[in-house]
Amino acid sequence: MSRFVINARGVNYRDLNARVKAAAEAGNEAIVLRNVHGQRYIGTSLRKPVKVDVYGTPGNDLGAFMDGPTVEVHGNAQDGLGNTMNSGEIVVHGSAGDILAMAMRGGRVFVEGDVGYRCAIHLKEYGAKVPVIVIGGGAQDFFGEYMAGGRVVLLGLNGEKLGANFIGTGMHGGVIFIRGRVDPDQLGKEVGLAEPDESDRAFLAEVVQAYGRHFRRDAGRVLEDGFVKLYPRFLRPYGRLYAQ
């Protein structure tokens, strides 16, 4: 497969994304961006299943509204990765910032390391369209807030205690799996705790193996440790807020 290489050094984001789009539309299936340095919205307007390899540090909103491509970031990512993403895959060989995958609707996001605050919030899901997020390290507060769907996996491989509080506040759909244990005080009031069932374990095996392939980790060893499952206790978490 031919690789179309673009040197992003000193290129404005608008010009860079226009060049990437032109390359994709010219039929290139693999595009390599070198010397990326803070350019935003990479992958946003591409609607083809192209592979984009990003070397350097991309800017905010990587893959925002993205529909189809696979973006692999060889480095850390910033805030807003996968914002309202519709389909495709983003793989980050490093950590990512705040608001990762807000309102994500479909596709997959794999982050090797940690993520910041307000990640995996407002995830959507309908029918067979289910967004999946796998995070290798930890996450911060409001993780999974207002989730309406999706599957989120937090592996905690950084060896640190999970920092997030208010996990899953307002959750009314979807599930979060956390490897190891989680202090109930860290959970939102609307979240229930359970053991993963058989179908959950099959799902975890599949996505953890994918994580292992992306980041050269022994998935079997990661899966050896137990997971807890966080689920929405109520279909209408705020149903009793109002006078009837």
């Binding site: 309406a148 307002g170 279909l235 209408r236």
Partner: peptide, 9 residues
Amino acid sequence: MIPAGTDAL
């Protein structure tokens, strides 16, 4: 893209 029967938040 939310579950039917939930409040849309």
